[in-house]
């Protein structure tokens, strides 16, 4: 895992700031990250206390949220959440694993994977082959026709990992992927993420506050809880 010395970074963050305007007019500064460079095949854990902006960072990296300040370059091009093609870019370039809500409840596990494949433009036959191969590898082949409600939490997360890597995206984002799992399942899911992303040379960025998970990632980015600003821009004590 890692980058060759001459390889350009897949992801580059410059002076990233984000704040939310609250109903009373005050602003809540949730994220500050001055600089980050990450390469294909790398695995980064993003850690920090609640409210430090881990989830917001992932949303920005998925072009779901436009940052208040700063710039995110993906493969040398600036990400714009408001750009009409951002959804298309996300479909092609990003795999996403959430904490718990990961699968469409009305579709079977296999259908969830195939729909994701279709959204990402993977041909149906190739998607089917890859999905079955992944499910077999993750021990979910026998559950492929089950709906998510019939699966255990660990099985759902493994299925979500399979869906995220189905189209071998260059960037895989995982938001607290093990938060609702027991230690054994948490380790299994983490290993799967690392293994599958490594195979496809995807850049894996996982937000977590789990110490055991953090230790398994070669790189760690620590975010700090930031201040709340009043209407005049002063720090709220």
């Amino acid at each position: 895992m890692g980058q060759s010395p001459r390889e350009a970074p897949l992801l580059e963050i410059r002076s990233l700031r984000h704040e939310y305007r609250q109903p009373d007019g005050s602003r809540l500064r949730v994220l500050r990250l001055d600089s980050l460079r990450a390469f294909r095949g790398e695995a980064l854990a993003v850690a920090g206390p609640s409210g430090s902006g881990k989830t917001t960072l992932l949303h920005i990296l998925a072009a779901l949220v436009q940052p208040s300040e700063g710039e995110v370059l993906f493969d040398g091009r600036s990400l714009r959440a408001s750009h009409p093609s951002s959804a298309r870019w996300r479909a092609l370039s990003v795999g996403y694993v959430f904490q718990d809500v990961n699968l469409l409840p009305d579709f079977s596990v296999l259908e969830n994977l195939l729909i994701a494949g279709e959204i990402s433009g993977v041909p149906r036959a190739a998607a089917q082959e890859r999905a079955l191969s992944l499910l077999r590898r993750l021990g979910l082949e026998g559950r492929r026709h089950n709906r998510p409600a019939k699966l255990s939490l660990g099985e759902r997360q493994r299925a979500a990992v399979a869906r995220a890597v189905l189209h071998a995206p260059p960037l895989v984002l995982a938001d607290e992927p093990t938060a609702s799992l027991d230690a054994e399942n948490a380790r299994a899911v983490t290993d799967l993420l690392l293994e599958l992303c490594g195979e496809s040379r995807s850049l894996l960025i996982a937000a977590t506050h789990d110490e055991a998970v953090k230790k398994r990632f070669p790189r760690l980015v620590e975010l700090n809880k930031l201040a709340e600003l009043n209407k005049e821009g002063r720090i709220v004590p």
Partner: peptide, 14 residues
């Protein structure tokens, strides 16, 4: 809402 949000993250435009 959750399903729509999930589809949006997967890359389905609004």
């Amino acid at each position: 809402g959750r399903e729509r949000a999930l589809l949006h993250v997967l890359g389905v435009p609004r």
